[in-house]
Design a protein around this nucleic acid. Structure first.
Lengths: 236, 236
DNA sequence: ATGCAGATGATCGTATACAATTTGCTGGCG
DNA sequence: CGCCAGCAAATTGTATACGATCATCTGCAT
């Protein structure tokens, strides 16, 4: 397999410090430890990770390219506060790409992949029944990982990166507009998709995926929340 | 229309210097004034734009997130040199998303959009018949703009940005592996797609789009070129 | 002559310093 | 009493400086 190449490349690039900080902050955002709109000052970030503003700034810039933080000139960086319209676009994008990814993945999937996905599902179910914030966070992550794993199986690194961005931003949207305190993702729907793939019912799997994404979106209340600044109030 | 909101936001963000540099370099890459593999040292870039290494570095970082330059730790930044496999993934991604974008665009397209697209086509045709490097460059840009304009019409900013990345990287791939010295994009195919949209033959338009993308890819010779370092020779 | 070791130069990685801009406060004026 | 001008503090924008890493070249030993 390609583990050799990957290891080589990893050893080579060696995750520069700024990337580590970026990953930490991203994880915090996706797991909802950081709320949308929170200010991320360069100094604070730098102090928090014991680096200079230079690296903090680089990390924040990187996150802004992923749409997870928005940097405003001369004002600073903030955890992104996606507008309802942005939220709709995110889910529209997922509806657009995920069936295609699913098809590619189904064409390349191995029995090993399937059992791995099932195990992921089990883990997800276990977390759902647990109580507590940490379990909730882990559940959020796990439910996203299902979609990410599918993208990985598809073998297209570009689509995989794009999906990572979409899933991360989806988590932000759900944090903002989600109502059902319960699971963000219909857990059972993931299972149905897997069995559809197993049975080679590709069209049905795609249908299920579409419904699944729409289902997540339906559980949102896409009304303008808070007033993240008068600016936005007049933009729309 | 939304020009007011856009102007407001533009006035607000005001394109920081690093972004201007990034845009300049990206344009140079897409128009093939910069060849894949060319070294972009921070000092040189800084001198060229009369800024410090700080800003040059930021611009190069940004371009690396778009996949147009690759930065190697402690070695520097280079214009990306996509591998054949990467090239295939880029076109696979386009086949995956462009039909969907086309559908969205067709649902929202206005007569004004259509005439604008046709005008773009005319311009493209005019450039095709011209000689000279500058005409060739303009043609490359115009043929990409067709796809970009479609994404813009679709009204999904996220997909639009993704398409911008894909089109830019496609240009790099064609620069590397393209054989037909002639047009990168079958010009006539763009026209057929538009007429299909006009006639509400949506399925046919998508089919044409898929063939079009595949046609571009077919005109490539996806064999390893040059030897961008023995490193890569052993990675695969 | 060939091959390895150490020095040298260039380039990147990171921190710090200074300039520019914004924000919030304070004080005077209508 | 409210409002605007102007100052002060904080934050970002950019440049420069220093340390670390890598590439190249020289010179000695084999």
């Amino acid at each position: 397999m390609k583990s050799a190449a990957k290891a080589m490349q990893a050893e080579d690039s060696a995750e520069t410090s700024a990337q580590l900080i970026r990953d930490s902050i991203r994880e915090a955002i996706v797991e909802r430890r950081l709320s949308p709109g929170t200010k991320l000052s360069e100094k604070d970030v730098g102090n928090l990770f014991s680096v200079s503003r230079t690296l903090a700034r680089a990390a924040l810039q990187a996150l802004s390219y992923e749409g997870l933080v928005s940097v405003e000139k001369n004002r600073g960086a903030f955890v992104a506060y996606p507008s309802p319209d942005e939220a709709r676009q995110i889910f529209a994008a997922r509806r657009l790409v995920e069936p295609g990814i699913l098809r590619e993945a189904a064409a390349r999937i191995t029995p090993g992949d399937i059992s791995q996905l099932k195990q992921l599902l089990l883990e997800e179910g276990r977390l759902m029944s647990e109580r507590g914030q940490t379990a909730r966070r882990a559940e959020i992550k796990a439910s996203g990982d299902f979609h990410l794993r599918l993208a990985e199986i598809s073998g297209n690194a570009i689509m995989q990166r794009f999906m990572e961005e979409l899933v991360a931003r989806s988590s932000l949207v759900i944090a903002l507009y989600g109502q059902s305190t319960a699971s963000s993702c219909g857990h059972s729907e993931h299972g149905e998709i897997i069995t559809a793939i197993e049975n080679n019912e590709l069209d049905r799997a795609c249908q299920l995926m579409l419904h699944h994404i729409t289902h997540i979106e339906t559980d949102l209340d896409l009304r303008e929340r808070k007033s993240l600044g008068l600016k936005e109030a007049f933009e729309l």
